[in-house]
């Protein structure tokens, strides 16, 4: 955990610069005399300002992939490049929202303190911190709960805190690891809209991992479909839905249904062990 004070670039007008580049990523767990290949040769690029969803069947190594990208796990081969720099440890320009919202917040800190702590570690001045924290709190709709402790809030609210913390950190790439898998359906829809909203408002680059096909299609500009283990990318689907999305309207359009149908087919194929040409499991 070294100190790196180089600020992450905040210019996002140019959407052609790659924010995150994953090249030939491979992860093999070496166990007790038996090696397990979790991820094999993954390559994709996320441009600055994009919102990309990764969707795959359960057992597709989604979490492994995400831990490799975030620098929490060493890769066996290939590389992850963030802002032109190779990732070997958790990089300064990245924030992660975990699925286990209750366990990723510090229970001994208030909502405000939870959001402020990473900014403090970044070396921001007090006034600047206070302003960014307040903006993030207001943006996720937690203005009234700012001084509560996380465990006093509902699950959905806790995940809002984790999202606010990540957004206030102003990362080059925001990783979200199945963030809404553990909340109820209604809350989930609200939080999906919140992500789209924050993406517009703060112009963050988002990589959103999920097992939910509807969620991936509804949220993303692109959807990367993963194969079964050992994981490769089956298809990079462009989502042609309009920029303004709403739970009611968007989800009932024919276009949404078609895209959903297409991705669903791919996932079914993945589950049956289908792999791209020239690759064998």
């Amino acid at each position: 955990m070294s100190i790196d004070t180089t600020p992450a670039p905040r210019e996002r007008i140019d959407t052609t610069t790659p924010a995150l580049d994953v090249r030939g990523l491979k992860k093999v767990y070496t166990g007790h005399g038996r090696d397990v290949e979790a991820v094999r040769n993954l390559t994709f690029t996320i441009r600055s300002g994009e919102l990309v969803c990764i969707v795959g069947p359960s057992g597709a190594g989604k979490t492994t992939l995400l831990r490799c990208i975030s620098g929490l796990l060493d890769v066996t081969d290939g590389e992850v490049v963030l802002d032109g720099k190779k990732v070997t440890e958790p990089p300064p320009g990245m924030a992660v929202v975990f699925q286990e919202y209750g366990r990723s917040l510090f229970p001994w800190l208030t909502v405000r303190q939870n959001i402020e702590l990473p900014l403090k570690e970044k070396g921001l001045k007090k006034a600047e911190r206070a302003e960014k924290v307040q903006t993030a709190i207001d943006a996720v709709g937690l203005t009234d709960s700012a001084d509560a402790h996380p465990w006093q809030l509902s699950g959905g609210m806790q995940q809002r805190v984790a999202i606010a913390r990540a957004v206030a950190y102003e990362p080059s790439v925001l990783l979200m690891d199945e963030p809404f898998a553990a909340v109820d359906a209604q809350t989930r829809a609200d939080l999906e809209d919140l992500v789209r909203d924050l993406w517009h408002k703060f112009k963050v680059t988002v990589l959103f991992v999920t097992h939910d096909i509807d969620e991936a299609v509804y949220l993303g500009e692109r959807v990367l479909v993963l194969s079964h283990r050992p994981t490769v990318i089956l298809e990079d689907v462009k989502i042609t839905l309009p920029d303004e999305r709403s739970q009611l309207e968007t989800r009932s359009t024919k276009e949404f249904a078609d895209l959903r149908h297409h991705v669903y087919e791919q996932i079914q194929k993945a589950k049956q062990g289908f792999r791209p040409d020239g690759d064998t499991a």
Binding site: K27, Y29, G31, H32, V36, A38, V39, S58, G59, A60, G61, K62, T63, T64, R67, R229
Partner: peptide
């Protein structure tokens, strides 16, 4: 949850 991510630490724990 992906199986690879959960089985690997478990294996490690058992070995340990």
């Amino acid at each position: 949850m992906t199986t690879a991510a959960t089985t690997a630490p478990e294996r490690r724990r058992r070995r340990l």
